[in-house]
């Protein structure tokens, strides 16, 4: 029986990564459910309407969505073994992701400075945790990008790094989708 270790590993790893993403989905689901139960418990503190700045969030969102697009281009470059393109689009993804994260941290910092940290109310606890968990995943994604890029730049695109890039792509797009839910449920519905 012909034995292609890479095809086998690809099949297992990528399927396994999908299953992991599903569990992450449930994790976010629990946080979303909690947010929806607690989002009106403002305990005399500010409501979502009073806090959120839609223009700011819109820019954040565009940054993240664009980074998903550049990630797709990077993956395509990798499959075509175009190292230079891969590097360019990958760095673009990283920078856009970092911009998103930076803006989010800025938003958090502003809230905390005004005394509206997670300690203020159940609503804010749920907000910081849901959005913060997403931000934590983004941070891990940024770290992952660095860890991925180094061997690719050194040894080029191998079946192993292609597999890992694919997994990263799935992860990054997944985070994008979660953000769309956050944008809708937390921000859009919060200010209406």
């Amino acid at each position: 029986m012909r034995h292609d270790p890479h095809a086998e590993a690809d099949s297992l790893t990528i399927f396994g990564f999908w299953v992991y993403l599903m569990t992450d989905c449930l994790l976010f689901g629990s946080l979303f459910a909690t947010y929806m139960v607690l989002h009106n418990s403002t305990h005399g503190g500010p409501t979502s309407k009073e806090l959120f700045s839609m223009p700011f969030v819109l820019v954040e969102t565009l940054a993240l969505l664009t980074s998903s697009f550049t990630c797709g281009l990077a993956t395509r470059a990798a499959s075509l073994n175009q190292k230079k393109q891969l590097f360019f689009w990958f760095v673009a993804t990283f920078l856009l992701g970092a911009l998103f994260l930076g803006m989010e941290l800025h938003e958090f910092h502003d809230f905390i400075k005004e005394g509206n940290s997670w300690e203020r109310s159940a609503f804010l606890s749920a907000f910081f945790t849901l959005v913060g968990t997403h931000g934590l995943h983004i941070s891990i994604g940024l770290l992952w990008m660095i860890v991925l890029l180094v061997p690719v730049m050194r040894h080029g695109v191998t079946p192993l790094s292609m597999r890992r890039l694919t997994c990263f792509g799935l992860f990054w797009h997944f985070l994008d989708i979660v953000w769309i839910f956050i944008f809708t449920i937390v921000y859009l519905m919060g200010v209406s």
């Binding site: 629990s30 946080l31 109310s121 159940a122 945790t129």
Partner: peptide, 28 residues
Amino acid sequence: PILTATLAMLTLDRLIGTHFFTLTGGGN
């Protein structure tokens, strides 16, 4: 994953003062 998330929220309540499940602050 539900257990992970729930334990994390209880941890945050106990560690950094969130109000997920507290009697004050609007917790439930």
